[in-house]
Nucleic acid binder design. Sequence first.
DNA 1: GCCCCTCATTGATAAATATCAATAAAATTT
DNA 2: AAATTTTATTGATATTTATCAATGAGGGGC
Lengths: 204, 204
Amino acid sequence: MFTQIKAYYKSLVPGLQEEGWNKLQERFTIQQLKKGELLVRNGEICRQVSFINKGLVRLFYLVDGKEISTGFVAENEYVSEYESFLTTQPSSGNIDALEDCELVNLSYNDMQAMYQLNPVFEIFGRKIAEILFIMISSQTTRLLTMTPEERYQSVIQNHPFIIQRVPQYMIASFIGITPEHLSRLKKRGYLRPFEPQTYKTHRR
Amino acid sequence: MFTQIKAYYKSLVPGLQEEGWNKLQERFTIQQLKKGELLVRNGEICRQVSFINKGLVRLFYLVDGKEISTGFVAENEYVSEYESFLTTQPSSGNIDALEDCELVNLSYNDMQAMYQLNPVFEIFGRKIAEILFIMISSQTTRLLTMTPEERYQSVIQNHPFIIQRVPQYMIASFIGITPEHLSRLKKRGYLRPFEPQTYKTHRR
DNA sequence: GCCCCTCATTGATAAATATCAATAAAATTT
DNA sequence: AAATTTTATTGATATTTATCAATGAGGGGC
């Protein structure tokens, strides 16, 4: 149940001791989220970070009644409406499940308690913030420095799982264009279509 | 010389002890940066974070020979090509000085050493990463959910110093449009021009 | 004062992108 | 398999934004 998240923590801090891990583990709670359900609703404070054991979620905003997707997170990553979580202010965005999910939640209060208990957990908080920073920062850079075509290519190269598992109209808003326009860009042929990798068994 | 940065650290971690502060302070180095000079050059690894005592810097990318500004940082904030700093990989962006600057630098190695010395410094690393995350994250949200007009208004409201101290053509690329277009948007009048605040002396 | 130099504006035009409406295709449910 | 829902494509058109070229305005140094 916690094997994936344990591996994740160990990869962040190889020196994590069993005792510390056990203390942490006690505070985890498992949450099942059905496809279509909301994990975070705009206006509410996001009070946990969620490690995704299984499934796929989406971060999005509601603007003029339209959904604008700003991120996708799948297995073995942390997701949160992190700004709301950090500031304990109401979230302006939403998170919903694009697939049935199993989440390992850690609440804000428990996280603070862990910081108090042992400063080694500060390392996790720092590393998670750093990882999230790098992700979001490259997203901003893409939006400012690339054309929509290039941004789509970049999604194909850097996050192929998105192409495979997320509807195209959500990807369109993620790269900052309309679904119709993305459809036409693909048709133009400047964008080679995504080809699922076929791995041949390696024999000798 | 370190009064501003000390206040900054204290605001992040009120419980910082004098002894810890002194250890940290020993590792700071002061750097003067003249207007126009580069703090970080694309292709080089960014090896420090810089607290700005005085002045104003800009983060930007070179794309097709054109500069695209992605951020502006002024006094009493930290600046770094943070992705490069964290990953010790060559930076794809640049940082230059828009005004003469005085910086308080802390190198990557010294920062790691401080983490080792006392885990309390992990808190700074975490908080700085969190602050940077919130900044960049709201920038991404703006780019995806707002029109250029709204983004400009948002800059006026949230970062008025940018309007006052940064050339308009740099702001244009920051909000994702051309200088000509920004000029026209302002002319259209949908955007009230920025009015510097006039504070009347308060008498009784 | 005048001269640079940088920056901002304006005009004409082209290109990119959005919108709206319809249809087609794909996936899911019954 | 049929029906229903969701998602993707296509066409016609409008809007937004970029590009290129020229002009204008302002500030700092001499």
